[in-house]
Amino acid sequence: MRLAGFWALIIGALLLFGLVRLPLEKSLDASQREVHLRTATLDIGLREQIGQLSYAAALSGFRSLVAAVLWIQAHTAWEETAWGRMAGLFQSVTSLQPRSVLYWDLSSWHMAWNAAIAARENPKEPSEFLRLRAEREYHRLGREFLEQGIINNPDSYLLQERLGILLRDKFADHCGAADAFAKAAAMEGAPPYIKRMGAYELSQCQGREREAYDLLRKIYAMGKNEHAPRVIALINELEEKLDIPSGERLAPVPSGRDYPPFHDGEHGHPHSH
């Protein structure tokens, strides 16, 4: 009887400690999530993708380790040009490590650039229609990776910049690209060239020429470093188009000079180099 009482006391103490720590754990949990810690959700769909053992390992606190192993598998799939398997592995990796900007970025690049080109030039598919459809499908997949990545990493300028590049180069969506670059440029740590890239795209977005002109003038007014010949040339072009009074116009680019080469990071996808 005494022993039963003692054990009741021990269990009671454990429960009491549980009650005391409950609000503390809840508050710690909320604070951790507020700064984007422990935000990954491991659902049943992921268990089917990665298998029971990997899922158990991920649940037991080894998410990053499982993600690294799956990424190596994806790399092997890349070497074998098994694009479908790669896409599935990328889904798993990004679900396990949603805060890794690198995984989202590379997954998108592999799909929208490598897999899309491979699909377009697939020698086993005689139908051009089907090849182009497959290419578009991979573009869409690449875009989805970036959009999901942005949802999980709203503080990453890099993913917004990559979305801008993707919309510009693969979807010819200049307005969307301009918006993505503008969002990226407004973020902490974003290099100054992103703002210019946004302005270049905006200048090609129909109906937003005035906005593009104002932005380019604003960039120009930022100082000599921003007096790139391409900025000046676009300002001149838009002045013509918008019929800006001659007194308010900017001096044109010296004749014989073409648009300068892009600065590092301003042209295609950086991983394509």
Binding site: I11, L14, L15, G18, L19, R21, L22, E25, L28, D29, Q32, V35, H36, L37, R38, T39, A40, G61, R63, S64, A67, L96, Q97, R99, S100, V101
Partner: peptide, 21 residues
């Protein structure tokens, strides 16, 4: 919830390697 410890609270390494401070 009351008897067992919350070990997830200590699983911050996954996010640290992903670059979260």
């Amino acid at each position: 919830a009351l008897i067992f410890p919350d070990l997830q609270a200590f699983n911050l390494v996954d996010d640290i390697v992903a670059g979260t401070a």
